[in-house]
């Protein structure tokens, strides 16, 4: 049985004009020890999907559907059950480690806090374990840093602190929301290596949220591409990124800067921008920006169809799309 089983998840934003769905019927499963990436442009609903799993949707956003975790539906659990799961079996690291850490508490205390909450550990024992983990995640001079404050650390060091804080209770599932976006490129690689190594070593499941296909390609085994609140393509990383079946994924791939690009060849972007949130309209959500769109695309939303082994995409021209976009 899958550890995480998300079925027909909706996240609906209350707005003055009515309700606007930001996540629209997302389904995926993630087994123990497996890794899944969710990619998409900002505003596609990937962060809300992650927050829905954590039960931390912002005010005015409601989750509907089913989020199965270890056999229970998180969406129907009472708040105190969720509190017991969060930080203990479900953990999350955030994009901006500067603002995600409390500026007024020493980092050692923040890393040790989940142990104090969930295990009822005394201060000395919790701090000792926090120190061990901070050393393990590669924070240099970790003993001295225990009593330092977030503003005294660099961005990379802060993200190592975040990771240690998330892992200290040994969660079954780690959700990483853009964990390297706010970091320098050189630091990004180190943090990704660290996350990958820790996930392998501890047998955790990893849900990685990123807009960066490169980060996803390096870190996870499977990937789901989201566009306007829906998963439009899913499969093994090698298949989805190697042979993208959905025009949107292809567009994202084309937008990647390439080292082997010929001089003078223009950097391509997906034409248009993600439309603002609003009531759903019929048809494929990507039709407005798609070069292959035809009248049929605008009347009904295409279902997920096979595009290869374990590889599916929601597009009526899977085959044609390949031909059209192959460089």
């Amino acid at each position: 049985m899958a550890l995480l089983d998300v079925a027909d998840l909706w996240a609906v934003v209350e707005a003055p004009t009515g309700e606007a769905p930001a996540v629209r019927g997302v389904s995926f499963a993630l087994a123990h020890g497996r890794t899944l990436g969710i990619v998409g442009e900002s505003g596609c609903g990937k962060t809300l999907t992650a927050l829905a799993i954590m039960g931390l949707l912002p005010r005015g956003v409601h989750g509907r559907g089913r989020i199965g975790f270890a056999g229970v539906d998180l969406l129907t659990q009472p708040e105190d059950t969720l509190c017991r799961l969060r930080g203990q079996r479900l953990a999350m690291i955030f994009q901006e480690p500067m603002t995600a850490l409390n500026p007024l508490h020493p980092v050692g205390r923040q890393v040790a806090e989940p142990l104090r909450i969930h295990r009822g550990m005394g201060q000395a024992a919790a701090y000792a374990q926090a120190l061990r983990l901070l050393t393990e995640v590669g924070l240099d001079q970790s003993a001295r840093r225990m009593s330092q404050f977030p503003h005294e650390l660099s961005g990379g060091q802060r993200q190592r602190v975040m990771i240690a804080m998330a892992l200290i209770c040994g969660p079954d599932l780690l959700i990483a929301d853009e964990p390297t976006t706010a970091l320098d490129v050189t630091v990004q690689a180190h943090i990704l290596d660290l996350v990958r190594a820790l996930v392998d070593e501890r047998g955790m499941a990893l849900l990685l949220i990123s807009h960066d296909l490169g980060v996803v390609a390096e870190t996870v085994a499977e990937v789901a591409v989201m566009y306007r609140g829906r998963i439009v393509e899913r499969g093994p990383v090698t298949a989805v990124l190697g042979q993208p079946a959905h025009p949107y994924t292809q567009g994202l791939m084309q937008a990647l800067p390439r080292l082997d690009a010929r001089r003078g060849e223009r950097h391509r972007v997906v034409p248009g921008a993600v439309p603002p949130l609003g009531p759903p309209e019929p048809g494929c959500a990507f039709a407005a920006r798609c070069a292959l769109a035809e009248p049929a695309c605008r009347t009904s939303d295409p279902p997920m169809a096979p595009a290869g082994p374990d590889h599916t995409a929601a597009c009526i021209h899977i085959a044609a799309a390949r031909g059209a976009w192959r460089p």
Binding site: M54, C83, R84, G87, F94, N102, P114, I117, H118, M165
Partner: peptide
């Protein structure tokens, strides 16, 4: 953001407010 982090650690709304929110 750090209030969300506090909740992600497993603190209840109230506990997060008392332990992390008030001092800020």
């Amino acid at each position: 953001d750090f209030m969300r982090t506090a909740r992600a650690k497993g603190l209840s709304r109230r506990a997060a407010l008392w332990r992390h929110g008030l001092r800020n």
